[in-house]
Each structure stands twice: as structure tokens, then as C-alpha cells.
Amino acid sequence: MWAVTGMFQKNSPDAFSSYHPVILFLYFCVVLFFTMFFLHPVLLAISFCSVFLYSVQLNGRKAIRFNIFCMLPVTVIVSLINPLFSHAGVTILFYLNENPVTLESIAFGIVSGGAFITVIIAFSCFNKILTSDKLMYLFGRLIPVLSLMFSMTLRFVPRYKAQIKKIANAQLCIGMDASHGNLLQRVKNGIQILSILITWALENAIETADSMKARGFGLKGRTSFSVFSWKRRDKTLLATEAALLFALLLGLGLGKFESVYFPAIRIAWPEGKSAAFYLAYALFCLLPIIVNRRENIVWNKLKSPD
């Protein structure tokens, strides 16, 4: 049947992101959960390295520069804030303005700074691979109307953006200019242009509503279509994710990832058999990299004759 199968194949930034959205979403949920809420130094180091590597794969060298120049100072500040304001903890190192500075709060500051940068990098990957239509698919089944509204808003935004430019130009040419004058004047002109946009947007929306109604919107039992479907490779990867996640939850239940900073630091380090749980986490975090690497190897093999 025609070229249909190809039609449903979407361009993706890398091999991992071409997998089913559920797999991608689950990946980020787990990584973000273990990063944001655990603050375990080893877990943190693993997730940081993984998402950093992945962000470089996705965004190229630009990502490295951004991470170093923008994120590093923020991380340092975040690490400093905590010991300055939180005086909890039992190991007092010194006094600053008669306030105790504790080892625990310094340690906590450092890990929370690390967690912060990891979360930011992870979200930079998230923004790149979980595009709006994938998110819409994920929530479309549960909340079809809201996910449609989300899609409609996404449709309107670039349209309004282009229109605002046209309006500004049109107004410029009858001398109702927005680009000159002092700040207040410019803000006032900006508001005026926004106001013209509002009229335009609302008046034109009537036809959109009619077009929705003409195509049966409002009937009972609306479904949510998506271009994504479960292939065998998706199922295999999901099973892998599930198995690793099971191991992680087991480790969590057994207290293998315990990390308490206050009042005294108590961290469960990976020793002996418990190292397996950390290995599971590392595998999980590195999934995108592993998947991409494997894809590369396959293609290199295909390209080069034996």
C-alpha cells in the first residue's frame, strides 16, 4: 500500500528519541525522580554524567559551553546558599556572624547544587526529544479535550506571533509607531498592538470554531489519534526499562539508596552486593547512549563492506 509506512516514520534528532513516547517519558520520570528527590551522591554522579553525555550527543558542543559557563556559577551559588541559611546539622565547622556553619549543610548544599544542574540539563534533553506532539499523545488518551486545547494553543502562538509583526508594520505605516519614543511610550504602544491582536484573534476564532463544529467536534466519544505505535523494538526496550526500574524500586525498598543529611550525614554507599542496584541505575541512565551507540555500530557495519 503506497508509501504509507514511510509516511508514519518521523524525523528524530537521534535513535533513542525515535522510540515510543511512553519509553522516553518513563526514562525522564525515573531519572528526574531519582535526581531531584534523593540527593544521593553516587546516584547524582551517575545521573549527572549520563544526562551530560546525552545532552552533548543531542546538542553538540554548544551544550558543553552552555553547561560550563552558565550552569557552573549557578551551581556554586546554590551550593553556598544552603550553609548560609541552614544551620541544622551536628558537625559545626566554624561560626559566621555568630551563626554556626555545619558540615551537613555544606554537604547538602553541594549535592542540591549538583541536583539542580542535573535537572536543568535533563530538562534540556527533555525539551529536545519530548516534543509537543509526543506529550499530547501521552496525555491525549486521559484528557482528550485538554490535550486538544493544548494543541490548539500551540497552533495559535506562532500564528499570533507572525500577526503581531504584521500589525506592527501596518501601524508603523500610518504613523502609529511602536518602535520609537521613551520606555513608557513604547510600552503603551506595545499594549496598543497587543490590543489590536486581541481583536483580530478573537474575531477570527469564530471561523475556527465553526470549522471544528463542521467536522463533528462536540460529539460524544471523541478519540485521540496519534502517529505513534508500538513496534517490537519498543516493547523490548520498555521491558528493559521495566526490569531495571523493578530493581531500582527493590533497592529503594531495601534502603540501599538511603541518604540523610540532617541532623547527621548517613549515606548508604554501594558495597558488595548492593553495588548491583547502582549498576542498574547506571544502566538505566545510560539507556539513550547505549541505544544510540548500538545504532551507530549497526550502521557502520552496513556501510562498510566486510
Partner: peptide, 11 residues
């Protein structure tokens, strides 16, 4: 109703 909400959000 829906389109009004979406339009206003986009604005």
C-alpha cells in the same frame, strides 16, 4: 468556549 480559552491563552 474552548476556542476562546485557547485564544486567550495564546495571547
Amino acid at each position: 468556549e474552548i476556542i476562546l480559552v485557547c485564544s486567550l491563552s495564546a495571547i
